[in-house]
Design a protein around this nucleic acid. Structure first.
Lengths: 205, 205, 205, 205
DNA sequence: TATGAATGAGCTTTCATTCAT
DNA sequence: GATGAATGAAAGCTCATTCAT
């Protein structure tokens, strides 16, 4: 009924930005459920009403922030995948790709963790993440398909899903679940697994 | 002030069990945040007050249920890992292990998904999951260590973490994230990746 | 979803009664729109939550109070109409009937006025009032029908509606709209109009 | 602080008119309480701030609209009453007067219904309606007084109030309360009642 | 004069938890 | 042990009104 305001003047652009930034920070720090609108507006230095002028409700704010984040930041890591020439791909190339994914998690680890957590209980959050995941899987798939004749991969689509999933979640685990092991060791070994999956080594140990 | 009641008589044991079962079902169906105590006690056919006789609060209920579930059901899948003789391990053995993990997720997929989602915002939930994860990683690690000399694995601990993570999350993804691909294809390809990581194939394509 | 509580214990019977009474008073004094739930619960000396244990919302409270009031108090005035023997009805009988209606308005004039005002903007309030109105019109209609052959009334149903309406609203007007004239004068003259409608007087002035 | 603006230039006259018209329509459609200032200014195609340039607040807008409406539209029906020569008044004359009142309710039935509803909770609204009512009652009273010696009316003032009230509310009821009976039947019978009150019929049935 | 972004008091409603019985 | 009525802090959201531009 009440249409949300579309900022036209610099003043209000500022207001919306301040709300978004405050929400981003608080969601990361205290969790989505742990943050209420009052806290957001207070941190943003803005009135309660302004919040609802720009966002229909808390949920819509979250969806917008997440979508922006994934589009602007997250995707970038996987986007350049097609640049690699799989015929000459080296172990270091693989390592470099994986390192980039790990780095992506450093941009806003808390926020990613908080929203990721909601995938399984919130269909709308999931939808946004899924769209992104499929884009990323597609990048991997294209890389495989391009050189399929040179690879011993039976099911490229399944492989793409699994590889994406593995890299993604190992990074995720490394960042959020304890610190029993250094990241570099995980990156190294994951690189090995993937590299030797693409480029079988000789059994001549 | 009132210490949490430890059920001794059959009648109250029944009460606690009924609360636990009702909560498990509702948490799975409606999510943790989506379930309130009134619903739990109503479904359990028990008075509101009884809830607090057995549980300090809603959170403690969740922790207890989760811990029980992981101990009694979840762990079982990985427990028998040491039975495998890695010298003679076949692709089908690997597939069988992975299939078991996938099966585990069928026991209570909704509940797992709901609680898993809270790992990243709730340290106590995370602690319980972490303990479990470490136990499972240990099983894999033992398997590797036993045959280390026969394998080309540089960093067994890192490998164990990654392998566990990959299997775990591919299963997770298969169950909860859309159904763009049949599980069997994921299981097959994941088995390939892991098997050929352990048992390098000849490069003689 | 949350079923409203049906009071079983004396303690809670008391609570519901206190809410109802407080609401009745406040609605009368400050108007329906002018009264909020906080005021009601405060006046009732009851917690906010208790309100919603007994009533789904403010609207439902109003409907219940109104329905009770009309059933228990309001109807009574018209109920005994059939006792009158129209063949021997006197001007004083008519006057007595009208006086009773006027008296009915003294029981809770403010509340009647407030709810009456909502008939035209609220279909549910109107439905309740309409049911009552039709019952009352029926009483008048029965009285007319019984003696139709002795009366010069062309359209008894229309007449019943009009007579009911006139008595009702003259009483209403007398109570709520200024005090430019004494009630007794209105009662007297209204009695005349109705009496001479039933019992035509001679034109021999 | 800022005095309410009195429109002098055509442009602003237009603005005020547009606000008034939009408000009239919305009040009629959605009720007074159901319409907010944003909706009004949006429908008027005017900025929020402009509203407060012309009206102190929402209430004042309503009062002005109502007063205008009663002065310009409503009163007209009763205004010509003195034209009737009561010595030769016919049943059709009475019917014609009543029909006019009924017609008046067709001009803006929703608006009348919405504002009428507020009489009993809002003294200022009531004041406006009362002034109007007294003007109308005066018209009837004059008609009676002019021919008092020819009539059998004991208390002309009371009679005027009652007659006005009856006509008014039967029309009101006919328009807003269900449709269990055709208007024409109500008009006919009401005309009978009033006509035979003025011009007693012979008892020679 | 006109604009529309910003304000914030105020409202309804929920629900984990307590406690008298 | 069990009951369920009562609690009240806290949350989300609305909207009449103000005021800088």
């Amino acid at each position: 009924m009440t249409a949300t305001r579309i900022p036209r003047q610099p003043r209000s652009k500022n207001t919306k930005t301040r709300i978004t930034k405050a929400a981003f920070t608080l969601f990361s720090q205290k969790g989505i459920h742990g943050t209420n609108t009052k806290e957001i507006t207070e941190k943003a230095g803005v009135a309660t009403g302004s919040f609802y002028a720009y966002y229909k409700n808390k949920k819509q704010l979250l969806l917008e922030i997440l979508e922006d984040f994934l589009n602007n930041t997250y995707l970038l890591i996987w986007k350049d995948l097609h640049k690699y020439d799989i015929r000459n791909i080296s172990l270091d190339d693989v390592k470099s790709i994986i390192e980039n994914v790990f780095l992506a998690y450093d941009v806003a680890p808390q926020f990613l963790s908080q929203t990721h957590a909601l995938r399984y209980s919130d269909p709308e959050i999931n939808r946004i993440y899924e769209r992104e995941r499929q884009r990323e899987v597609d990048q991997i798939l294209k890389l495989i398909e391009t050189n399929r004749d040179r690879l011993t991969i039976n099911d490229p689509f399944a492989a793409a899903i699994i590889l994406h999933n593995a890299v993604e979640h190992v990074a995720h685990t490394a960042k959020f679940i304890g610190s029993e092991i250094e990241e570099s060791r995980l990156i190294n070994e994951l690189s090995n697994i993937i590299y030797y999956y693409f480029v079988p080594r000789n059994n001549s140990k």
